[in-house]
Design a protein around this nucleic acid. Structure first.
Length: 239
DNA sequence: CCCTGATTCGC
DNA sequence: GCGAATCAGG
């Protein structure tokens, strides 16, 4: 993993948004360990940890006894092949024409698309301080992720699977709405110094990848347009 | 089991 | 510096 300035920025954003390390890892296509490790090294603010670290009265943090790790695992270094899939065509849907098949699907399943498997969880509910919860998914792949939350909230995939390709087909329509985030909006100011909408276009690592860059809503990482997609009101996601 | 984040430590 | 392995709590 090469931690470019951009990926670090993304990590910071996502971390700041309160996403779980695993979620961030999925979006950046790295492991959560990498996320945690890097975040730790960067000195990012620690997030509520599941492990109890009770504090003494004087403020010192008492860490539970750490057992001397018996780490001597001659584990063969079989590097898992990380096939990169560059499926970006789906964002190019300019009209509201309903594509029943995301492009990503068509490309051999060498690597499963990083679509989050879990449904909305506590993390989503406990999210930021507003009536707005984060879509449990990431805009890393807006065409796939965002709509999923918008469409079916409680779809734990276990019960709502009467329609197999339900989510897939639904997403296209959702994406189509709200002015279809196709390519980068031609912003008047190509270069801005302030905060920029970090809604991604294309796949990270590919030449055409870039962020929206428009002025984000205050306190949010996205501009108004993309925030509307990235966030879903609790009320609205219930059917 | 699953999830989570934190830490360790070989590389 | 990086991150897999591991730990540890829920």
């Amino acid at each position: 993993m090469d931690w470019t300035d951009e990926t670090i920025a993304r990590l910071r954003e996502l971390w700041d948004q309160g996403l779980s390390t695993a979620e961030i890892g999925r979006q950046l296509e790295i492991t959560k360990n990498a996320v945690v490790g890097k975040a730790h090294r960067l000195g990012l603010p620690p997030r509520p940890s599941p492990i109890r670290s009770r504090k003494n009265a004087d403020g010192t943090t008492e860490v539970p006894r750490r057992k001397p790790p018996t780490r001597s695992k001659p584990k063969p270094k079989v590097s898992p092949e990380k096939a990169e899939d560059a499926a970006q065509g789906s964002l190019l849907d300019t009209s509201d024409a309903k594509k029943t098949e995301p492009v990503a699907q068509a490309k051999g399943d060498v690597k499963p698309a990083p679509v989050p498997a879990g449904g909305l969880k506590k993390e989503a509910v406990a999210a930021p301080a507003a009536k707005v919860v984060q879509a449990d998914v990431a805009p890393s792949r807006p065409a796939v992720a965002a709509p999923k939350a918008a469409v079916k909230a409680e779809g734990t995939a276990s019960n709502a699977n009467s329609d197999e390709d339900g989510p897939k087909r639904a997403l296209s329509s959702v994406v189509g709405h709200s002015g279809a985030p196709r390519m980068a909006p031609a912003i008047d100011r190509p270069v801005r110094r302030g905060p920029a909408c970090c809604w991604p276009f294309g796949d990270p690592g590919t030449p055409g990848f870039h962020f929206c860059g428009a002025r984000p809503l205050s306190g949010k990482p996205y501009c108004a347009e993309h925030a509307a997609i990235a966030y879903v009101k609790i009320r609205d996601r219930r059917d």
